[in-house]
Structure formats: structure tokens, C-alpha cells
Design a protein around this nucleic acid. Structure first.
Length: 502
RNA sequence: GCCGCAUUCGUCUAGAGGCCUAGGACACCGCCCUCUCAAGGCGGAGAUCACCGGUUCGAAUCCGGUAUGCGGUACCA
């Protein structure tokens, strides 16, 4: 079961910090999942914090999408907002950064007071010009320290020009070393950070790298599990934790999810919104199973796991180091596995919102045995059951007379065969209008005229369903009912007659 | 450019010095089953473990270098 936290008796606390600047992204979902599994495996606490400091790009709609889809996946949290715009729960709230501004201001003030940060009066235009010069000189772009040690007179001069100060963190000159649960020891020279970094804009709003550290410290986060794209930012974070006088958490940088061309998965090249997969009819169980295995493996050959089983088995040390291409084929396969594992009744509930109400609940449950193993996604059911919903005329409009004719037959022969089938079916008593009886009669009829069963069934299938590919024929006929079957076969016969006559 | 991380079948991965003539899954191919399509069963092909050098009796596994890929390099998150 749960083993002791890796770093002694400190209770594990992890967090997921999505930014509501877009719908829940596949990568964010997996990072959330890994955090969740890590916390549950160790009996720790899972915190959700909304990083909504970017008011211009963020929206309540996206926050709702993120929270809703996280819930849909089965990922729940112990602290944080429970519903979008709703009450937070937990002792370290509020859990939305837009409501924590006083804390950030106070922490920035502390850094200023201790001399670990300073006011910088350079304008964005000046900084841009400086960067361009450095680039022209083939130097790595970096802040040149112009405002590092301003005299009072210089400061007053800037102020009287109407300039407002941004706050910069004084980056010490050293090599930062930190341990990563997945990658081991990482060393990065602080020089690579490009000089003293702005932590509060000149308009007073704090920057991501600052608030993330302030909040992780304030919320007593012990393990920061996040995407590999944050690895290079980590030295800055370590330095800030130390400057603020807080314990540095343990880091774990998980590999990225990749487009087929191995670039970081993006909206441009892949479907990235979890909600889109949900609308296509992927099951959350399949999604979770798939995401968990994208970069992690239990080390055995088992591959089907529930969320709880994953939480039991998950070990962060076994997370793979390299990026993983999102393999849609594998997701499709897993989804099929999960669909087939449901009972007909369970499947009917999941399918309800994907299938028109023209097919009632009873009808839906009844057709499931015919379509269950033919679905990859729940949305596939729409096409699979369409023959039950479409009118006879709509079905007839789907095909031309030639399509009814099997490869080795002609129109006249097909018309005769189909007429024979029609008579057999018409002859059935209502009580005998069943899958078994239908099949037996049609097989006998095929044999009687010397046709292969497959050839004989082809025009029936197309006449009944309007399609050359369909769920099992006789089961479909039973569900359709005798009258509609006969009407559709008559329509097919009428079509054939037009080409036989010609 | 600079900094960092990575590199086992097409893809996801197993692999923690001898159990590896490298295992599994998806995809692919073939056969079987079969009313179409699926599902299922059986089988096949597919990786000189990026490359080069070391360490070792022995390396996919340890070390160094190279190459390639990716990520980062903001008063974005």
C-alpha cells in the first residue's frame, strides 16, 4: 500500500496549477493525473490552484471547462475551488491567484526590504533595444543591471519623468543544484537565467515565476510535479524559495506529450482539448488509462488499470524520461476495450446523449448487443443505429439499384432472389419474426436457388439498412419490425425493377 | 547563439552489468471464425538498444565525447 513519503515525515502535498487561458489541455490533464496518482499513492494531499493572474487571456468559461473535465476524468482534489466561481475549501485559500494579490505584494516588499530585489525603471522599449544590441554583438540576451544600484538622485529623476518601477529579483552568481525525482541531480548556472528577473511589473501585477513560488511556499507544497518545459525555470524558483526563506520542494519534471512530428503537442497539429475527446465519445476510464501509460509503466505486462489501481501502482521514479508521441490508435484500442467491458445497461446510459431521442431507451438497450463491439467511440453509435431512426424513404435514398446486385449476379437474378426473400419474410407469423427464424428461412431460400448466403444477404442488407456495412442483418431486422422490413424490401425491389426493365 | 533535457521495433514501452539469440501492447501483414463490418483466436514481419570511444571477464544497462531531437532563453503562463 502507500509507502512513507520520500523525504521523511513531512506529509506529502502536491498541487496542480492550471491557467484558465484555454480549455483543459491533454498535457495539463496528464500532469494533473500524475500529481493525483502521486498524492493518492502516498496518502498525501492534492491541491488545485487556479493561476488566473493573466486577466487578459483568462476566462471563467475556461476555468469551468478545466474543473469540469478534471472531474469528468475522475480526478478530485482535497483543497481548492470545487466548482468554477464557487467556494474554495481548504486551510490555505483563496485558491485563485487573482484573489491573493496582497500576499504577492507583501512578499515582493519583503524582498525589496532585504535588498534581494530592487526597483527597475527601464522601459520595455529600452530593454528591447538593449536585447537587440546584445544580439548584434552575438551575446546571449541578458539584463545588464542598469538599475541594480541606483542613487536616490537617479531614482528621483526617473520618478519625475513619470516612470514607474518594476521589481527585479537580484539573481545571485552561482550554480543552482536541485534534485529531480525523474532526472536525478540537475545543475544549472544562474547566469543562464539572463540576469536579474522581473517579478512584479511596473503596473504592480506579479509575474508567474514569482507567484508560483510564493503560493507553493504558502500552501506548503512538498513536491512540484510539472511538465519538462519548466525544467529550465527551476533554478529561478529555487533561488526565490531561498530568498523568501522557505524550504525548497522536491521537483519532478515529467516528459512532454508530443505531436506525431515529435514537437510539443499543440492545438495546431493535434486535438488537445480534453472536452473534444469527451464529445467524440472517449470514456474517461480509457482516457485515464491511456494518459497514465504515456510516459509511465508499472513494469509488468498488464495494461488495463482503473484509476484506483493506477494510484496503487504509480511510482514517480518509473516515469520515463523522454517525450511521448500521442498515439491515437492506442487510445482508440483502449476505448474499445472499455466500451466492450460495460454491460448493455451501463453502455446505454453512456450512449444516451450521443443518440437521438427518436430511439427510446428500450430501443437503445435492445440495439446495443448488435453494435457494442463495432464501436471505437461512443459517437460511432449514431451511424450504427441510424437505420433504425431513418425513414424508409431516407434509407432508400442512400443507395442506387446497382449497389444491390452482388458481384456474380445480374439485376434480374437479384430481383428474383430479393423477391423470394421478401416472400419468406412476409410469410412469417408475428411471433416468428425473430433473428433465428429470419436467418433460418433466408438461408434455406438461398440454398433453394443455389446462391451463396453472403450474396443472398447483400441486397437484403442494403435494402433494410441502406448500407453495405451494417450491424448483424437479422438482429437488425428483428428490431426494425416486420412491416418496416417489408416496406424497405419493396422499395428495393422497385429500384431493381427500373434497371431490369431497361 | 547560449543553457538544459533526452535518445530501445513505425508508436507507447519492459529493461536498474550476466536471466536479452532484447519481452509486451498498439498499428501493420497472413490464416482461422464469419451474413457485411467489427470483435475474437492463431501466426508473422518489425530494434546491429543513435553513433564513437572507454570501464569491466561481461554493457541496452556505468563513464566521456559526437550527432540528432526537443524544451527554455519575456514587464507570457
Amino acid at each position: 500500500m502507500a509507502k512513507a513519503p520520500a523525504d521523511g515525515d513531512r506529509a506529502v502535498r502536491v498541487r496542480m496549477a492550471p491557467s484558465p487561458t484555454g480549455p483543459l489541455h491533454i498535457g495539463t490533464a496528464r500532469t494533473s493525473l500524475y500529481n493525483y496518482l502521486f498524492a493518492r499513492h502516498l496518502g498525501g494531499t492534492y491541491v488545485l490552484r487556479v493561476e488566473d493572474t493573466d486577466a487578459a487571456r483568462g476566462s471563467d468559461e475556461f476555468e469551468r471547462d478545466i474543473i469540469d473535465n478534471l472531474h469528468w476524468l475522475g480526478i478530485n482534489w482535497d483543497e481548492g475551488p470545487q466548482v468554477a466561481g464557487g467556494e474554495d475549501i481548504g486551510p490555505y485559500g483563496p485558491y485563485r491567484q487573482s484573489q491573493r494579490l496582497e500576499l504577492y505584494a507583501a512578499e515582493a516588499e519583503r524582498l525589496l526590504a532585504s535588498g534581494q530585489a530592487f526597483g527597475c525603471y527601464c522601459t520595455p522599449e529600452e530593454l528591447e533595444a538593449m536585447r537587440r544590441e546584445q544580439e548584434a554583438r552575438k551575446e546571449p540576451p541578458h539584463y545588464n543591471g542598469r538599475c541594480r544600484s541606483l542613487t536616490d538622485a537617479e531614482r528621483d529623476a526617473f520618478l519625475s519623468e513619470g516612470r514607474r518601477a518594476a521589481i527585479r529579483f537580484r539573481v545571485p552568481d552561482e550554480t543552482v543544484v536541485f534534485d529531480d525525482l525523474i532526472r536525478g541531480r540537475v545543475e544549472i548556472a544562474a547566469e543562464a537565467l539572463g540576469g536579474d528577473r522581473v517579478i512584479v511589473r511596473s503596473d504592480g501585477s506579479p509575474l508567474y515565476h514569482f507567484v508560483v513560488v510564493v503560493d507553493d511556499a504558502a500552501m506548503h507544497i512538498t513536491h512540484v510535479i510539472r511538465g519538462e518545459d519548466h525544467l529550465s525555470n527551476t533554478p529561478l524558483h529555487v533561488l526565490l524559495f531561498r530568498a523568501l526563506g522557505h524550504e525548497v520542494p522536491v521537483f519532478a519534471h515529467i516528459p512532454l506529450i508530443l505531436n506525431p512530428d515529435r514537437s510539443k503537442m499543440s492545438k495546431r497539429r493535434s486535438q488537445t482539448a480534453i472536452s473534444a475527446y469527451r464529445e467524440d465519445g472517449y470514456l474517461p476510464e480509457a482516457m485515464v488509462n491511456f494518459l497514465a501509460f504515456l510516459g509511465w509503466s508499472p513494469g509488468t505486462e498488464e495494461e488495463i488499470f482503473t484509476l484506483d489501481e493506477l494510484a496503487n501502482r504509480f511510482e514517480i521514479e518509473h516515469v520515463h524520461k523522454a517525450g511521448a508521441v500521442f498515439d491515437k490508435d492506442r487510445l482508440d484500442y483502449l476505448n474499445g476495450v472499455y466500451i466492450r467491458s460495460l454491460t448493455d445497461e451501463q453502455l446505454a446510459v453512456r450512449l444516451r446523449r450521443f443518440v437521438s431521442d427518436a430511439l427510446d431507451d428500450r430501443g437503445l438497450v435492445a440495439v446495443i448487443p448488435l453494435i457494442k463491439e463495432r464501436m471505437v467511440r461512443l459517437a460511432d453509435a449514431r451511424e450504427l443505429v441510424a437505420f433504425l431512426i431513418e425513414t424508409d424513404a431516407e434509407v432508400a435514398d442512400r443507395y442506387g439499384p446497382d449497389e444491390l446486385v452482388p458481384a456474380k449476379a445480374d439485376a434480374a437474378g437479384t430481383a428474383a432472389a430479393l423477391a423470394r426473400a421478401r416472400d419468406e419474410i412476409a410469410d412469417l407469423a408475428p411471433d416468428d419474426f425473430s433473428t433465428g427464424e429470419l436467418e433460418a428461412r433466408c438461408r434455406r431460400a438461398a440454398e433453394a436457388i443455389g446462391w451463396k448466403a453472403g450474396d443472398f444477404f447483400k441486397p437484403i442488407r442494403i435494402g433494410i439498412t441502406g448500407r453495405s456495412v451494417s450491424p448483424p442483418l437479422f438482429g437488425s431486422m428483428e428490431l426494425l419490425g416486420k412491416d418496416r422490413c417489408l416496406a424497405r424490401l419493396d422499395a428495393a425491389l422497385a429500384k431493381l425493377a427500373t434497371v431490369v426493365a431497361a
